[in-house]
Computed example of a mutant assay.
Amino acid sequence: MRTVLSAATVAVFTVTAVPPGAAAAQTGATGVRVTGVERISVATDGTQANGHSVDASITPDGHRVVFTSSAGNLIPGGTTAARRVYLRDRQAGQTTRLGTEEPLKPPGISGDGGFVGYPVQWMRGEMIRLHRISTGASIGHSCTAYNCEMSVGADGLRLAYSVRFRPPEPNQRIEVIDWASNNTYTIDIIHNTQPSRPSLSDDAYHLAYQDGGEQDVFVWDRTNGTPAGPIEGPARAATLVQLSDDGSKVVYLSGPDTFVYDTGSGTTQSVPNVRGVAIDPTGRYLLHAPSGTAGPSSLTLRDLQTGTDETVSAQPASAGIDAVSAGGRDVVFQSEAEDIVPGDTNGRTDVFLRSFH
């Protein structure tokens, strides 16, 4: 599909400033977007968590959020203080626990909200536990190694994960499993001992991944079965952030800047002096933090078409990939701040949702 991938830089955005902490209205791409915030890490009856809650991901429609928590009071009769995976259904106002195993990595939720997956310890390696929300049933799929990194497709029937072998074996591979067709596709990463997290498009036909050893980012096209890249060019070290759900954009970091690669045109958009955190499913809205920060900081949502910024959190906060719903309507993040919503007295890290409508 693409034989040569370019990293040509295009014009830099001009940013429309938004007052920090604005809670009533902000100027967005189509005029004024009203903003609100809610706490996600609560029990069904609204009880605040008595443990730390982190690692949130949201569905493209914004209806479901999955996160991990060490709270023991998010479900009736819950007593464990170990980390577990929870699902918050915003439409139903319900919080449920998914399984009884401790997740080794942040959970991922399918685009349709029907499946949640995460790696767990299994014998001498790791296994991916995939939960079907509608029935409560789950299946396990062995990674055959350790330090698995995974990405879930739109309907949960397609899954990508990295396989990292134990030293002294230097090689890795990424596998894309398609339970619908009963096929598995393998991408070998030679002489690489660094983690290589995959990022899978909703249709599972595109996959972005990083060769951690070479610090290069590649895009794999299922139609021809070969990876293309590095997309950042030979003279730049890069770190993968995320492939948008529609497969149109790849976000990566290089130096103090963020870059957004267009898989269709092969062009690259430069977003200087920010650290990209996540991108919405359509590839238009970029969640970012100040460049040079690694821990909690302010979070901002940028419209890549207009260059306008909207404040997600003026207080120190952090977020992961899949933190933004389609159209930049909702953003999930975690923060220890106690003044984001009224009545936050638990003294714990909570998961919040900022909405723009």
Rank of each mutant, 00 (worst) to 15 (best):
V4M: 15
S6Y: 12
T9F: 09
V10K: 07
V12M: 06
F13V: 11
V15L: 10
A25V: 11
G31R: 15
V42H: 01
D45R: 14
G46D: 14
G46K: 15
A49H: 09
A56G: 08
T59Y: 00
T59W: 01
P60Y: 04
R64T: 00
S69D: 12
S70D: 14
S70L: 13
S70R: 14
L74E: 06
G78P: 02
T80M: 04
A82C: 03
R84W: 02
R88A: 02
R88F: 04
A92G: 00
T96E: 07
R97L: 12
L98A: 10
E101H: 02
G108P: 02
G111F: 02
G117A: 03
M123S: 12
M123N: 04
R124D: 09
G125C: 08
R129V: 13
H131D: 08
R132I: 02
I139L: 07
Y146A: 03
E149G: 07
G153I: 01
G153V: 00
G156L: 00
R164F: 01
P167Q: 06
P168Q: 14
I177Q: 05
D178T: 07
W179R: 05
S181L: 05
I187C: 04
I190V: 09
H191C: 06
Q194K: 13
R197Y: 07
R197C: 04
R197W: 11
S201W: 01
D202M: 00
Y205T: 07
H206S: 04
A208D: 15
Y209V: 05
Y209C: 08
V217R: 11
F218G: 06
V219S: 10
D221W: 15
T223A: 12
N224K: 11
T226Y: 05
G229K: 15
I231S: 15
I231Y: 07
E232M: 11
G233T: 08
A235D: 08
R236Q: 15
R236K: 02
L243I: 14
D246C: 03
G247T: 11
S248Y: 04
K249T: 07
Y252G: 06
S254I: 03
P256R: 14
Y261G: 15
D262Q: 08
T263P: 02
G264D: 12
T267M: 08
T268H: 08
Q269T: 15
A278N: 13
P281R: 07
T282F: 01
L287Y: 01
L287D: 07
P290D: 11
T293P: 05
T293C: 03
P296V: 01
S297V: 03
S298H: 11
L299H: 11
D303P: 15
G307L: 05
T308K: 12
V312H: 12
A317E: 09
S318K: 01
S318H: 04
D322Y: 10
V332M: 06
A337T: 09
E338S: 05
D339V: 05
D339N: 13
I340M: 10
G343A: 10
T349Y: 10
D350G: 10
F352H: 11
F352G: 03
L353D: 09
R354Y: 06
S355T: 14
